[in-house]
């Protein structure tokens, strides 16, 4: 049970970072922490005590397998996370070129 709580705490650490940090890169890293805490949570909920990796072996069929579905979900979510992170990084590089800074306090053209 403690592992699940640790996941949630890691999630909150990421959320805290995303809200309080002022550096664009650090915000992106915080988002990645949130992302991976969620993936860890998914991997945990598929775990079954004494289970092995869900690869069917025709020679030795009777075994307890861990739940393969969360693993597939995590793989899909990693692909999506890769796309969003790449997109975010591209935007950050562009912002750095336009504003010349990573500090979010100096990026405030849009107001009101």
């Amino acid at each position: 049970m403690i592992a699940y709580w640790m996941c949630f705490i890691l999630f909150l650490v990421g959320l805290y970072g995303a809200i309080t940090r002022r550096n664009l890169i650090k915000i992106a890293i915080s988002l990645s922490i949130m992302e991976f805490s969620t993936f860890l949570f998914f991997a945990l909920i598929g775990y079954i005590d004494g289970g092995v990796a869900p690869i069917v072996d025709p020679a030795d069929p009777v075994k307890i397998y861990v739940d393969p579905l969360p693993q597939a979900l995590v793989l899909t979510a990693i692909v999506i996370g890769l796309a969003t992170t790449a997109m975010l990084m591209a935007v950050i590089i562009r912002i750095y070129r336009k504003y010349g800074t990573f500090d979010i306090r100096e990026i405030k053209n849009l107001r009101g």
Binding site: V79, L82, A86, M89, A90, I93, R94, Y96, R97
Partner: peptide, 20 residues
């Protein structure tokens, strides 16, 4: 697809850096 797209992402970011 994945190999090409990751290479594209890498190249795009490098190109940004070179342009800078």
């Amino acid at each position: 697809e994945v190999a090409a797209s990751i290479l594209t992402i890498f190249l795009a970011l490098v190109i940004f850096k070179e342009e800078m």
